[in-house]
């Protein structure tokens, strides 16, 4: 997509009544951002927790087959909250979001991270015994590091939208 097409779409969204309403009610965006941070905390801490569990050799910790089903519903719920609050913030300030490479990188990485986690959850459900003593396996390590790197980069990009958009105008 060229820069002008992206700007065109951003301007169309900015002209909608919903966007206008959000722009007139300045408290909504910071309020939405606070909920966004609370939800990303649940998702990020859960991902970190699962990754450390995959990398750990400590037999006293609860097994993967217990930890993952306990955390996944909370991760899914927080992802829904993140998508809703993220949409609110994008509709309120579409230009700010659409002009930054940080925003588009973030969106791409979210798709990868979410698909990867879905694959992981399905695999855990199907082959519990393999993941439960999987600490020596390359797959578990790779998933753990990739997941951590992706979620960390997603948070970085999210914060950097606010710091870089003016130079892309």
């Amino acid at each position: 997509m060229t820069h002008t097409t992206v700007r065109h779409w951003a301007d169309l969204i900015a002209a909608t009544r919903l966007s206008q309403w959000l722009q007139d009610h300045l408290w909504v965006v910071p309020a939405s951002q606070s909920v966004h941070i609370a939800a990303l905390s649940v998702l990020f801490a859960s991902a970190l927790f699962i990754s450390f569990r995959l990398l750990s050799t400590n037999a006293k910790l609860r097994p993967i087959s217990v930890v993952v089903p306990a955390l996944i519903p909370w991760m899914r719920a927080s992802l829904v909250v993140l998508l809703i609050t993220g949409t609110v913030q994008t509709v309120a300030e579409p230009v700010r979001q659409f002009v930054t490479p940080a925003f588009w990188s973030k969106m791409c990485m979210i798709v990868v991270a979410v698909s990867m986690t879905e694959w992981f959850v399905r695999s855990v459900r199907r082959h519990v015994e393999r993941w439960d003593d999987a600490f020596h396996r390359g797959k578990a390590r790779m998933f753990a590091f990739a997941s951590l790197a992706l979620w960390t980069s997603i948070v970085f990009c999210g914060r950097f939208i606010g710091y870089t958009w003016e130079r892309h105008m």
Partner: peptide
């Protein structure tokens, strides 16, 4: 400043996310 702030967000996410697991 932005990098320090992002590290602050990442660490507070782990503080809140982990404490919520225990609280729940």
């Amino acid at each position: 400043f932005p990098i320090t702030e992002t590290i602050h967000v990442l660490s507070l996410a782990v503080v809140f996310g982990s404490i919520v697991m225990l609280d729940l």
